[in-house]
């Protein structure tokens, strides 16, 4: 079987390139703990209102003892509840979101906040907003004919 010397060099270059890219990604995953949002945790999406965490009066921003924040939200056709969330800038915020009905996704453009929201599972994602301002919280997964209208607001404020 014939392998051209030039071809051999190209194969080596290709392998080095792929190892370099995956090496950088793996490096960040380990060193900076930079992962996409995995959270294997189940929940009965039809009974969210009866759970201690996702009942209507429990939703919203809560401060943890260590100074970080937890935002608890429910995604349902067609909105994210509570419909307005206010968090301080440069503070780690953990979002915990459950779907009350179908598949949804949440994305705040120009930030790292993004996760799928899957009925039957709890999504959890931790991020930190670097700039103050008003952001839309958009549903980015098709959830029905009203999908375009599913969005809420996020305000990132400067600490007093």
């Amino acid at each position: 079987m014939h392998i051209d010397p030039l071809e051999r060099r190209w194969i080596i270059l290709t392998l080095v390139l792929m190892l370099a890219i995956t090496g950088v990604l793996l490096g960040y995953a380990i060193a900076a703990n930079l992962h996409p949002p995995s959270n294997v945790e189940t929940i009965d999406s039809t009974r969210l209102h009866l759970t201690p965490e996702f009942a209507e009066d429990k939703l919203g921003v809560a401060k943890n003892p260590d100074g970080t924040l937890t935002v608890t939200m429910v995604a349902g056709r067609y909105g994210f509840y509570p419909q307005h969330v206010e968090v301080p800038v440069a503070t780690p915020v953990t979002f915990r979101i459950a779907s009350a009905d179908v598949l949804h996704g949440v994305h705040v453009p120009l930030t790292n906040l993004s996760t799928m929201i899957v009925p039957g599972y709890v999504s959890e994602v931790t991020t930190l907003f670097e700039k103050t301002g008003e952001y839309p919280l958009l549903c980015n997964e098709y959830c029905g004919l009203g999908h375009d209208h599913m969005w809420s607001r996020l305000t990132v404020i400067s600490p007093q």
Partner: peptide, 28 residues
């Protein structure tokens, strides 16, 4: 499924390596 909650990050990483490997036949 990177952004889906119900699979652990370890499996996502494993699939990521394969995803980059499948670029090799295209480069060849």
């Amino acid at each position: 499924l990177y952004m889906d909650p119900f699979q652990e990050t370890g499996f996502k990483l494993m699939h990521m390596f394969g995803t980059f490997m499948v670029a090799i036949p295209s480069l060849l």
